[in-house]
Amino acid sequence: MSTMKYPAFTMPESNARPMSERCDSNLTRLLAADEFVVTGELGPPKGHDAEEVRKKARMLLGSVDAANVTDNQAAVVRMSSIAAGLIMMNEGVEPIIQMTCRDRNRLAMQADLLGAYALGIRNLLCLSGDHQSHGNHPGAKNVHDLDSMQFLRMVSDMREEGKFQCGEEISGGGLQLLVGGAANPFADPAEWRPYRLAKKGIAGADFVQTQLVYDMECFREYMKRVVDMGVAEQVKIIVGVGPLKSAGMAKFMRDRIPGMTVPDATIERMAGAVAGIDTEKKAERSAAWKAEGIKICIEQIQEMREIEGIAGVHIMAIEWEEAVKPIAEAAGLLPRPIMEV
């Protein structure tokens, strides 16, 4: 914790067009109408089987308004987010394509965005990207031609001014993409985090999705700062939640994942879920943990709905996509509204 005081900050007035005019995606329409949105996440396979993507997409269908398709997440090579996004779209789930600054320079980014747009993709999440030293090609050269803030600015300019980053005009006009970024309320310096979210809004983010939130007390504090700065009026804030699978997973996330906080009370609750179940009965213990994880997640969503400045939840259940529907259902978020143009 820094001993120095951060200066007061208020979001500068925005001259952005109304949300509804920026893009024609379902997610945009729901955000523009101030619906409490639900997004999900789909991790593409470490292979080329389209059926794997379809299967996961079908699990999310009807439970989310749109779903992120990760881009070489954790710096592990997987099917391209744009290709997997198109497969998912054909199953009826609207994609939010993730793209990192790690793997592409500004030429590749813009070329791929033109292609994605031509294929009908309308939502984009701009990320720095996990460092390749954590992934399966640690000897790779990283790019970082732009950082995530500059990436947001570039895409926002591609939409609003119809221009490439170099200033030349895009033939056919601007890309009407909904542009988002990521926010981690729990990374350090803690005082900086609301400012970083504000800065993403200034750079051009229409929405942000946060890192997984388990620590509600810290998160409330963060949201209060964000709302006081006037950020939530300009940037739609979608909060990351996710069901824990076991007490071990909760501990792992607390101790090993950078920028992640899991309160001890949550870990104790997960541990308590298997009280009285013999350690040999693995399937029974796993079921008890999963049920408790889902329950905690549902309670969290209900609490989130009461916090000022929150536009929706991003339910992250990677490799456990079937959990999304029961969570959304029990949290009273189903059926999802469809807003036609």
């Binding site: 950082d147 995530s148 981690n184």
Partner: peptide
């Protein structure tokens, strides 16, 4: 990066 600490700090 040019615009402040990332989420991994």
């Amino acid at each position: 990066l040019f615009n402040g600490p990332c989420g991994g700090s």
